[in-house]
C-alpha cells in the first residue's frame, strides 16, 4: 500500500481570505512575527500500487481533476514512508 500525502492550497495569486483573517487574529493575540498564513487542505491516501512510478499518473490525475480545482488551487504530494 502506497501512502500518499496531498496538500492543496489556494494559488499564490488568489486572495486567501481565511488565511488573512487568521493572520490578523494571531497578530492581535501578540504573535507579531507571523507575516503570512495560507490555509489549505491535507489528504492522506492509501493507494494499491507497488511503487511510486506505477501510481504517479493516477495520483497526478486525482490531484489535478478531483482534489483541487486548478482555477483556484495548486497541490503538492509526497509518498510517505510506510
Amino acid at each position: 500500500m502506497l501512502k500518499v500525502h496531498v496538500l492543496v492550497h489556494l494559488r499564490p495569486d488568489i486572495l486567501d481570505v481565511q488565511g488573512q483573517a487568521i493572520r490578523q487574529a494571531v497578530t492581535a493575540a501578540g504573535h507579531g512575527g507571523v507575516a503570512a498564513v495560507r490555509v489549505g487542505k491535507s489528504f492522506r491516501l492509501e493507494i494499491d500500487a507497488p511503487n511510486v512510478e506505477a501510481a504517479r499518473d493516477e495520483i497526478e490525475r486525482l490531484c489535478h481533476e478531483t482534489l483541487s480545482n486548478p482555477l483556484l488551487e495548486e497541490y503538492t504530494w509526497e509518498v510517505e514512508p510506510s
Binding site: 488568489i14 486572495l15 481570505v17 481565511q18 483573517a21 480545482n69 482555477l71 483556484l72
Partner: peptide, 10 residues
C-alpha cells in the same frame, strides 16, 4: 467557466 469560492466575508 470559473469557480465559486468562499465568500470574502467568511
Amino acid at each position: 467557466p470559473g469557480v465559486l469560492t468562499k465568500n470574502d466575508t467568511l
